[in-house]
Amino acid sequence: MKRKRVMTNGTFASCGYTIYVTQVQRIPAASKTIMMVNGAMSTTASFTWAISALDDFNLVLFDSPCIGRSREYNVGADSPTREIESDILLDLCKHYQPDYLCSMSWGGAATLLALANRPVGVKKAIIGAFSFGVSNDMRSLIHEMTCRLNDGEMQEFSDLVNETLGEFLPDRFKIANKKYLSELTDSEVSYLHEHFQRTLSIDKDEAILAISNIESETLFINGRKDRYTSSDSVDLACDHIKNSDKIEIDCGHFMAMEDKIVARQLKEIIENYFNLGSTESASMPFSQAAIG
C-alpha cells in the first residue's frame, strides 16, 4: 500500500548556523526514519526520488549552511569545515533521532565523521557514490572545476559537471543542473572552493583512525560506470569499519537520478539493508542482490 506523505519545513540552529530542514512523515505512520545527507554541490532537491520511492520510511532532509534554502539564513557566515558539517549532522541526529543515515557523493565525508562519534540511535548507514581518497580522475576534475570557478566561467563550470559526474543524467536533469550550477552565488562559489581544497588535502591516516571508531553497520554503494568514485575506492574504508560491506550497481555518479530502473534498484537495496525488504532478499549477500 502506497502511503500518503506530510511534509513540514522548519529551521534548526547548530554550531552558529541556521539549517533549513524538511521532514517527511508517512500516513499510515512509518516506524523508522532515515536522515538523508546530500553532496557538496547538491540541495535536498536531489532526494526527490527518495521522497517518492522510500514510502516505508519517514525522512529528514536538510541543506548545508551555504547551500540551497539554508543559505539565506547564513549570509556573511564563514563556510563550515568538514568537522563542523559533521557536528551539525550530529546535532541533527540528536534532535530528530533517525534510525538510519543515507548520504550521497561528498556528503559521505561528514557522514563518516559523524558515525565515528557514534550518534545514539543510528543503527545503520548507507554511503552512496563516495570515494575514500581522491583518485587521479577526481583530482584532475577538481582542478578543472576550480579553474572554471576562478575565471568566473559558470556556464563552462556547469557544462563540465554535466559532462563528467553527470554524464549519465537524462537531458531534463542536465538542463536543470546547468541552470542551478550556472547561477551559484558568490557565497556558494566560495564554499565550493573551500570544499575542493579540503578534499584535496585530506590526510588518509587521520581518516582511517577516525572511521575505525565506527560501530554502526555501514554499506557503501558505488556506480559501476562512475569514473570518479569507484567501488575499489572504498575497499580501504571497509577494511577499517568493523561492520561494513560494499555493493556496485550499474549506473554513474548520480545513481537514482539517472534512470527509473536504477532508482527502483536503489530503493530495494535501501529497504533490504534497513530491514524492510523480504526475508529472502535481506539475507542475500549484497554483491549477489545487485542487478546489472
Rank of each mutant, 00 (worst) to 15 (best):
R3W: 05
R5C: 00
T8N: 10
G10K: 04
S14N: 11
G16L: 13
Y17G: 06
Y17N: 05
V21L: 04
T22E: 03
Q23A: 03
S31C: 14
G39F: 04
A40M: 08
M41P: 04
T48A: 07
A50M: 01
D56P: 15
D56H: 15
F57V: 02
F57S: 00
V60H: 04
P65A: 05
P65W: 01
C66D: 11
I67G: 04
S70E: 07
V75D: 09
E85S: 06
D87L: 10
D87Y: 13
L89S: 12
D91R: 14
Y96K: 05
Y96N: 06
Q97E: 12
P98V: 11
D99H: 11
C102G: 10
C102A: 15
G108I: 03
A110V: 08
A114M: 12
L115S: 08
A116G: 14
P119W: 00
G121H: 12
G128V: 11
G128N: 15
A129H: 03
F132T: 01
G133W: 09
S135T: 02
S135N: 05
H143D: 12
E144M: 12
L149H: 01
N150S: 15
N150I: 14
E153C: 00
E153I: 02
M154L: 14
E156Y: 04
S158F: 05
T164K: 04
L165M: 09
L165S: 05
G166D: 03
P170W: 01
D171T: 06
F173K: 05
I175F: 04
N177E: 00
K178M: 05
K178L: 01
K179S: 02
S182V: 00
D186E: 12
S187L: 11
E188R: 04
V189C: 06
H195F: 07
F196P: 05
D205M: 13
A207M: 09
L209Q: 14
N213P: 14
E215D: 12
T218E: 02
I221M: 08
N222A: 13
G223K: 06
R224G: 11
Y228F: 14
Y228M: 06
S230V: 09
S233Q: 08
V234I: 11
D235W: 07
D239P: 05
H240I: 02
N243M: 12
S244E: 07
D245E: 12
E248F: 01
I249N: 02
I249C: 04
D250N: 13
C251H: 03
F254E: 00
M255Q: 07
E258W: 06
D259T: 12
D259R: 11
K260V: 13
I261K: 14
V262E: 02
Q265I: 14
L266A: 10
E271W: 13
N272P: 15
S283A: 15
F286G: 03
I291T: 12
